[in-house]
Design a binder for these strands. Sequence first.
DNA 1: CTCCCGATAT
DNA 2: ATATCAGGAG
Length: 216
Amino acid sequence: MLTKVQIRHVLDTMTEMFPDAECELTHSNPFELTIAVLLSAQATDALVNKVTPGLFEKYKTPEDYLSVPLEELEQDIRRIGLFRSKAKNIQKLCRSLIDDYGGVIPQERDELVKLAGVGRKTANVVTSVAFGEPAIAVDTHVERVSKRLALCRWKDSVLEVEKTLMRKIPRDEWSDTHHRMIFFGRYHCKAQSPRCTECPLLDLCREGKKRVKVTG
DNA sequence: CTCCCGATAT
DNA sequence: ATATCAGGAG
């Protein structure tokens, strides 16, 4: 585990590398953001962004998503993958938005996670990006980067990773750090071929040192 | 824990 | 061919 000074160094380095890191899912309101994040499970942002422009043009309100047969919505999002469960969740989500929330995405995380297809990670993204509430959404990138850099323990669950990061990072830096860690993981500390040899954090990364020794 | 699933990189 | 992708439900 890293010291306080080392963690400060990690945060500052990521800020230098990705000063403008932000949500890359295209959206223009909280409802579109929620749909986009739901669709992004086990899919790349790039692919989601290819589908959502047409989707958001066709479906603008919860009522719109409920106005077509399930099979039609499935075909509209088929390219993203996991399309059957996602289409079903979208219609269930829209039904409860109309029935229980006045057709509007709720701002509280405890309410968001009650929506179909919305778990803790998606809820954290929505509260943070759409409503400006400090949060750290632990996705595959944040988990991988946190474990490689020993910001948390290797065996930690995603919930434990989130708690650890919230404890070690100042609250007013949660959202920016969260996005910088995603960029760092997506473009630099990648799952398959991480750029360890050109990494400014290699000296405090056990995983990177091991990897450099093996691969050269 | 398993299952859902197509697109893309390696 | 296989791993991975802004996970969540059962």
